[in-house]
Design a protein around this nucleic acid. Structure first.
Lengths: 246, 246
DNA sequence: ATGTCTTTTTGATGTCAGTTAAATATACTT
DNA sequence: AAGTATATTTAACTGACATCAAAAAGACAT
């Protein structure tokens, strides 16, 4: 066996300019010059193990984060202790925006699996906004997207049946896989059933039963965390995005 | 009868500087100088009648708005046509932030009663951000608040019982009344039962029944749209904010 | 492998809140 | 003031999904 040079991929210096997620992430639409400015303020990526907290409700917010690899969930806690997952963040997606409200985060962020996140310190972001024209607008675009995404979730929780919610969840994941140029009809879930159930506002048992139903109807194939979408059209019919073809 | 000079209050020139809502609204924490700058870019307030749309899903977003008087609801529409109300906006509260996502609004904004809204054109906002230091931060604070507010709603829809939701709704209104230095335990609802039900993800009949229950338990007094909170503590106990006394 | 722990599935039962239906009250017109 | 439309309440029935209980399947450590 020849000796192989190991590269510790977690500790490479980040470069937005060379990051293959740049078009999905914060730098979307920036020029090369502007990207160099970004690189100067983005911290070494943080490595997270499964179940590590990136930040907690109440922590002073000093940065926003971009997922580089893995998956991070964010969840709010209620007065009486139960939790609601408000988002699963895939590579290229941002988190920590809730921390803008008043200098501290209002939810918990936990890694679902081994993950790596880039960190954008807020004070540096402030300065950068003055230097890079268009970054402010970009900033607002990102927050607007977060807001309108939350609104979609409110609709899901407020008006949809359990079946519609799960279909909607699968379609959302599929769409995000496509954005990343990954397979849109075959992917692994980073989260356990329990988290899917919590996110969609239902019981674990319901998630399990619906997966079984979808599988028996040949809409999807489920093998533990591995999902294959067999009939995208029918999923869209369920959520009302498509007319039934019959 | 002596002749009275009528003042058309709807068409007075706006002045953030003299507005009694300024500490709740966009200008929160600005200096007098900065407020003058604000005044220069805020448009004449728009008058809205009951059921008037301020903007619609898909409209090009050219401004954000602040409610001056009245009440405006925002709602998202699903693929299959049903709607989810995502917010009721009281005087001093902003709306239109979802429009930052990609140059067009992603929800509908409708006046619940005769209302007046101030308009902040986006292009002017952009310019102003460069002139007024701290406005950027203020901007982010506002959006962060919106995000973290939506998260609370997600928790409500995902995890709370109907009783907890209505109690939570009443407490939220009460808190916002207090912010405005209005009576915190006596106020009028601007929205019909149907809208409360929609917002809280339940049936109108359930809202009606719960109001009746709360009334019979002497927690509140309900007279059509007029609500009097008789036992704030018990409301807080219901949502888990307080320990039951005794 | 073996045993322990966790996650997922499956089935039986219960319940909260939706649905349906109708009465009552209020608001708006002419 | 009468008449029509709209909003709200009340009651009985129902169903979607939660809860409870237990088995099955994986994951992980020894």
């Amino acid at each position: 066996m020849s000796s192989i040079k190991r590269i510790d991929v977690e500790h490479l210096k980040v470069s937005c300019k060379e990051c293959n997620l740049r078009e999905l992430c914060f730098p979307h639409g920036m020029s090369d010059d502007e990207l160099s400015n970004m690189d100067a303020v983005v911290e070494q990526p943080k490595a997270l193990h499964k179940n590590d907290f990136l930040y907690r409700d109440g922590d002073k917010s000093q940065a926003i984060f971009a997922v580089r690899s893995g998956c991070v969930k964010t969840m709010t806690e209620s007065a009486n202790g139960d939790e609601q997952i408000v988002g699963f963040h895939l590579p290229g997606e941002l988190l920590g925006l809730d921390g803008f409200a008043d200098d501290s985060y209002t939810c918990n962020a936990v890694a679902l699996e081994t993950s790596s996140v880039c960190e954008l310190p807020l004070d540096q972001l402030e300065t950068l906004c003055h230097q890079v024209p268009g970054l402010q607008k970009q900033m607002r675009r990102i927050m607007g997207k977060e807001v309108s995404n939350d609104h979609k979730l409110l609709l899901l929780l407020g008006k949809m049946t359990a079946e519609e919610r799960l279909a909607s969840f699968l379609l959302s994941l599929s769409g995000r896989m496509e954005e990343r140029h990954w397979k849109e009809n075959e992917f692994n879930l980073s989260m356990p059933r329990q988290d899917i159930a919590n996110y969609l506002g239902m019981a674990v048992e319901t998630v399990s039963r619906l997966f079984a139903t979808f599988q028996s109807e040949k809409i999807i194939d489920v093998d533990r965390r591995h999902i294959t979408i067999l009939d995208m059209h029918r999923l869209k019919v369920i959520v009302g995005e498509c007319e039934p073809s019959k």
